[in-house]
Amino acid sequence: MNFFSQVAQFLTTSSNWTGTNGFLAQLGRQIELSAVAVVAAVLAGVGLGAFLGHTGRGSFVVLNSANAARAIPSFALVTLIAIQPGIVRLQQGGFVAAAITMFALAVPPILTNAYVGVRDVDPAVRSAAVAMGMTPRQVLRQVEIPLALPVVMAGVRTASVEVVATATLAAYVGVADLGFNIFAGLDTRNNAETFSGALMVAVLALLVDLLLAGAARAVTPEGTRRTTRAARQRGTGLMWRQAAARS
């Protein structure tokens, strides 16, 4: 039996989909883990980023730290946290370790984009708002945030795709998400199992990217939507997506 029919067989075996460690349960865990991390990162990152972008104070230190944090390999962080006694004692220690790691992964792009988005609001628009008599809080909420939203969303999208993809590593510290079959297959040299798991994760990551691209478009104020070409050059936009949407 050749490799790809082994993969097909693995993917079509219903017992691989159901049960505690079946694909469906794995998918649920991966999504849960990613959602917890991204939501927490949005709560922490957007507010801080917008504040820094609005005032400009302390932004150098914070943004550079965020950038440096990106160099920390998630693989190292998740294992390091997972083996700490305090975490080991928890019932879902692996999940907590993974969630903290994914949070650390998600904050930098969200924070940076919120900062850039708010900072880059056209100064003329901002001073017009001030001249109209808006309070600083009103300027932030009624002008800066709506205008910054597309950039913020782009950061959330980048973070989400990275998190969903990297959450695979959680399986290494005992969370049976979509990484489960990959590592199980590597351990037992069952290449078809590894490949099947990898395929599932890749599909999920692409779906999340697609979904958030749609969401990003939806939050862009009508008047500020860029031409397709400009958007392509700016964002992390992938052109196959637009081609797919057209066909």
Partner: peptide
């Protein structure tokens, strides 16, 4: 771009 989105562990295995 497609390659870039695929998780690293998955890509290795693919």
């Amino acid at each position: 771009g497609l390659i870039y989105v695929i998780p690293s562990v998955a890509l290795l295995s693919l």
